[in-house]
Structure formats: C-alpha cells, structure tokens
Write a protein that binds this DNA or RNA. Structure first.
Lengths: 360, 360
DNA sequence: CTAAAATATTTGTCCGTATAAGTCAATGAC
DNA sequence: GTCATTGACTTATACGGACAAATATTTTAG
C-alpha cells in the first residue's frame, strides 16, 4: 500500500501532466489539500516538497504553490534517444514479434525501447502514459487499450497532441486523434474470411467477437458485411459478443449451448487465433470433430496455430513487419517528416480447420 | 541568520567533504544528532533529507544514514526509474516469458523496462551496454552474450563495477565479476537428464552442445559427469560442438553421418529445446522414428515442446519466475541491500520423446 | 481615488509525540 | 554448529500545534 504522501504526490502529478493545471497556475493551498485528503499539514508538505525536488512545482512563501514549466525544462528538453512502446501485452500472443520488429528498426538507428504494458486495463494504460510523459522520449508507439469503449484517457491523448512528441498507433487507432497508425484492414479481413466459409458451403456461421477493442468491432463488421452479401444463401447469422472483463468460462458455456442445438452452426469465426485454439480444444471436449463437425477460423496467424490439431485457417498478421514499419514511420516522424498511415491488405492462410460441406 | 537545519547541513557536509566520514561510513544516528545540536528530530531529518537529495548521503531504514559516493559524478545525477534489460533475444524462444516476469515485478514498483537485444553478437552487446550506460538507469539486468568465449566487452563490465549501478546477470554469469545472478543449475540439470537416459537403458548417447555460451558448456559438463558415473555401463561418449556462427546445415550434416552409422547412438542430448525440435524433424527426414529408433531430449521446456510430435522430454526452466525473481532482486539491490544469487534446482519433465530400451 | 496601515492568508521553520517498519546482534533450541 | 526467535535500536510515516516570514487582501486615513 502506498503511503499517504505518495498518493497525494501521484494525484497532483497526474493533474499537472494531464493539463488540469497549466504552467504557473496556482495549486490548491496546503490547508485546502489538508481538507481534501484529510491529512495533516506535514503530509501535504512532504508531497509538495517531493514534487518541488523534481521541478514540477515551485513555491512562493506567502503566495502559494505553482506549476513549474516542466514541459520545457533543460533537463527535459534534451530528448533521450528512446522510443516508448505501450502495448496491451508484452510476452503473449503476437506481441513479442511486433516488439522485435520495432526493436530491430530503431536499435539500428541508435534508439532504445522503453516498454510498458497495460494488460488491457485502462487504468494501467493511464499509468503507462503518465510514465512515458515523464521520461522525455523521442517518440511514442501505442496500441490502444480497450479501444472501442475506453475514453477515460482521452485527456492524456489530447495532452500528447500539444506536447512536441511524435505519437503513432498500432493495431487500432482513434478517429478522434490525428496520429498516424499502422494496422491490418480488419473489416476487409473478416469479410474475406467469412466469404471463404460461404464458398466452402457453410450457411450457419457463428461469430464470436470481443467488443471492447476496435479490432474486434471491425472484425465483427466484416463478418456482418459478408453475411449481407450472401443474404440469398443464408439469413442465419449469430454473434456472440464478449469483453475483456468477462469470464471466459461463461462465454464457453454459451458456446456449448449453441453448439449442442440440433440446428447448430457448421462454422465459427473467432475474434483471434488465441480464442480459436481454445475453441478447438473445447469442441473436442464436446465430442465435436474439427473440421468434420465444425469448421473454426481465427485471425492473426499466431505461431501456435500451425501446431494445433487441426492446423488453424486464419488471416495473416504482419507482426514483425508491422513492428518494423511502425519503427520506420516513427523515425521519419522524429525527423519531422509527415507520414501516411499504413494499412495491410488482408491475406488468407488456408490450413486444415475448415471443411467443404457443399456436397453433403 | 541561517536556519538551524541549514547549520546542521553545513556542518555535516563539511565533515563529509573534509573526509571525516569516508564513503559508506555511518553517520551519527538521528537521536545523536538531536542531542549534539539540541534540536528536534524534524530539524535533523530536514538537514539529512536535503543532503540525501543532493546525493551526499543515503539512508537505510533501521540501519542508519551513510555517506554516499559523492566523488563520482554518476551518483550525483538523478536516476530514472528505469531498469535496463539486455538479452540475446527478445521475441524468440523463452525470452518473452522471462521479460514478462521482470516487467510484472518492476512495473508494480513504478519502474519501466528499457529493452535491448544483442542477437548473440558481442558487438551488438557492446552497443547495448554503452546505450544503457548513457541512460542513467536505476539498474541493469544482463544475459551475457556468447559468455563462454566473449571477453571483448570485459572493459565495459569493469566500468560497470566502478559505476554506482546495480547489475544482475541472468541465465549465466562471469566468474570474473562479482555481480549477483539468477540461473538454472545447468550442470546438475544436464547430469540428471543424462542419468535418466542411462536409467532407460541407453548406452550410446550423443551430446550436441553450443560451446560459445556458458550454459552450453555447463550442460556439456553435466553430460560428461553423468558419463563418468556410468563408466561401468558405457564408455561410448560422443559430443558434437557448435557455435553461433556455425551454419546449422553443416552441423546437421555431421549429425546425419553419426546417425547413419550402424553403431549409431540410441539417444541425443540437445543443447536446448529449440535444437531438439529441429532434430526431431531432421530425424524424421532420415526415416528414424522418435522415440522408437532414437530418443531425444532438450532443455528449457520451451512452449512448443509439448506440441511437437512426440512431445519433448526436457528440463524445466522457470522463465517467468526467473524474470520475477530477477526483478525482485534488482529492486532490493536498488535499495542498497546485499543479495544472494538464486540457483534453481533441476527438474525433469518426462514426456514422449524417450524410450526405455533395457529389454531389447 | 490613492496610499498607507491593518488584517488575513499562505508558506517556512520547528517542536513533541506516536506508531510502523526495517536492521542487527544476542539468545536459545535443535 | 545451525537456524529461528527475540528484543534493542534505527529510520519512515504521520499527527497536531506553534510561531515566523512573506504575500495578498481589506480597511482606513488623507
């Protein structure tokens, strides 16, 4: 548990970095802070003293405490040859590959990688963003956290716009902010993948999508688009939505209900390969053979997808190349060039997890 | 008239600068200073706190206040809450897990991760080390590159010793430097693994080891030790050595020669799981069935090792736990505590890639 | 209305006290 | 001899109160 003065310090620092108090604004007086935080004056002064040492505020006896010019202080103006990277995960899934790609590109140009992960928690994203703003980086690459529903850190993103710091999104981007981005064409990707299932004769295709990030939303939209195009063949569209906070056991319970119906779907489009691999194992436990009884597809061409039985049909994700491109774009931005977003065209990877059921 | 705490500060600083207290000497306790200067504890702490901020002294709770290494410029500069990590790889093999472990531990304590990888190239290790030294970090975790043959960066390691910077090795350590380390008991590990093959009735066991890193050397030594203990059963010991710079095709060519002899080995101990997995595929291409015709074992319990066919028998590697422990140790070192190395006991993971041939 | 004076507010220094938390060496059981 | 426990010692956090010093605001005198 952090100490009281650390809590006060953290709160004040956040407000300063987020722009709630501008430079030379007067902070609340010590007595006010005493009341707000219900602590003694000693504790308030301890917190403020620390911030003064870090040159975030200055004090005038009899006058008050004021925000120092932290954005352009000599100690901070000299930018470190360091590029920050905020991702939802570091070691899981496809992220190691993305990070390697970034690292390769920027380390060849003398930059280091400052990593931070959010574990898909917007509060941790906030912490990460603040930490990044304290180190004065040359650039910042962000994979947004819960991008479809999370707007609680938009104040920090706005602040980032005013800072003289190149920012780049990967995997997804917010329309609200004009930062460049590098991402897969998720909607088209899902459309192509679902089309493929229609081509293979499937008419009842379940879609399972995570709806708290934009990739999930886009993939769901692509799935729906494909259904619209094939409305002549099939009107049976069923979508199961879940979010990060949901217990996956509950989700799988609902999947079981659906798959045990007599008119069950013959194919499932999964939000990503991670889910698809879990679903293959789950289908086995329901005594459904993949792909004989059920076709399953995913996204991202995860490393393990070729090893699972049956090998998973999926959509390509450039991973290391995406990291490489993101790094290259970032280097250009640091050199004050204007860059254009990069969107990768969809690419289908056919393996063994789907079956043609046209002549049944 | 100067304030009381300024007087105390001045007096202590004079004593330190004059050499009355040497570096790491213990200063009078706060109670003693209270009596000496006839002031309250607050005043003493205010003076000492100021000196701490200027890095003239450091404090250890319950221990006392000590003279900091003020003559060195490095310690005077404000340290970033950043911990550097240099590994041979970032995204491959078991490294993502190790890095996750480190990240989880240190990010909970407000530290960020500054990553750099060497791709097993000593020149890149040199670049990484230099880059890390520029960024005045709080600490540095290093997995040494080509630790068995690479001494060209020893000058930098010596420099690190004189710097006031906590340094920690993982996976392997140099005897020449007294930095703490976290590693697996590789020699014992290899011994146990080879013993297991003897127990299963094997007498001709090929060892393939990478000899430019210490892990490879230790594993080779463990293999040899096991052979010495089983000299009654078998004298047929054969070792194939390779280095990072070697073309693996050439290595496998030699493996093919060995495996196609009539008196070929019945088992192979591989440097790590990565090699073992390649060897399983290679054995198939030679029409050797694993484990019927050839038993194969590796090290590190790589994520994929359970997915390959047959699932690989291997030695455990704590991976994420190792990262966690390394992070925890580093945090203690930053707080000026002395820490002891951590060595993990070997643990055998029996799977399907070895066969008992006692009753042949 | 202006300028000086009085008053209120705000930060700076300092004290005494209390409890928590970490260090370290002596002690005692095994 | 080894290891866990205990207790003395030391620093860390926190409270409340007091007065000093600088600044801000209001009042008052001209």
């Amino acid at each position: 548990m952090p100490t009281k003065y650390e809590k006060i310090k953290k709160k004040l620092l956040e407000d300063i970095l987020a722009g709630k108090y501008a430079v030379n604004d007067k902070l609340p007086t010590e007595s006010e802070l005493m009341q707000t935080f219900k602590v003694s004056r000693y504790t308030v002064r301890r917190a403020i003293g620390d911030l003064e040492n870090d040159h975030y505020i200055y004090r005038i006896q009899g006058g008050g405490n004021f925000v120092d010019d932290w954005e352009k202080q000599e100690s901070r103006t000299l930018k470190n040859k360091m590029i920050g990277v905020i991702t939802t995960h570091i070691a899981n899934y496809i992220f190691p590959n993305i990070i390697t790609g970034i690292d390769r590109t920027i380390s060849n140009n003398g930059y280091s990688l400052l990593l931070s992960n959010t574990q898909n928690d917007p509060r941790k994203e906030r912490t990460s963003l603040l930490k990044m703003m304290e180190n004065n980086l040359s650039g910042l690459i962000i994979e947004p956290t819960q991008s479809a529903i999370n707007q609680e850190n938009f104040d920090l993103y706005r602040k980032l716009q005013t800072l003289n710091l190149p920012v780049l999104f990967i995997n997804a981007h917010y329309e609200e902010f004009k930062f460049p981005y590098v991402e897969v064409a998720d909607t088209q990707s899902a459309e192509l993948l679902t089309n493929q299932l229609f081509t293979e004769g499937h008419q009842r295709i379940l879609g399972i999508f995570k709806t708290d990030d934009l990739q999930g939303i886009h993939r769901m939209n692509g799935y729906i688009k494909s259904y619209q195009q094939h409305s002549a063949q099939s009107a049976f569209s069923e979508i199961l939505m879940f979010q990060t906070k949901d217990n996956m056991q509950t989700v799988f319970k609902r999947v079981a209900e659906i798959l045990q119906r007599t008119d069950r779907p013959s194919a499932v489009v999964c939000y990503n390969d991670q889910l698809a691999i879990q679903l293959i194992a789950f289908a086995k436990s329901l005594h459904l053979n993949v792909p004989r009884d059920l076709s399953i597809v995913g996204f991202d061409d995860y490393q393990l997808s070729v090893f699972v039985d049956p090998a998973l049909t999926t959509m390509a994700h450039p991973k290391e190349k995406m990291g490489h491109d993101a790094g290259a774009l970032m280097l250009e931005m640091i050199n004050r060039k204007t860059v254009k977003p990069i969107i990768y065209a969809p690419e289908l990877i056919l393996r063994k997890s789907i079956k043609n059921i046209t002549d049944k």
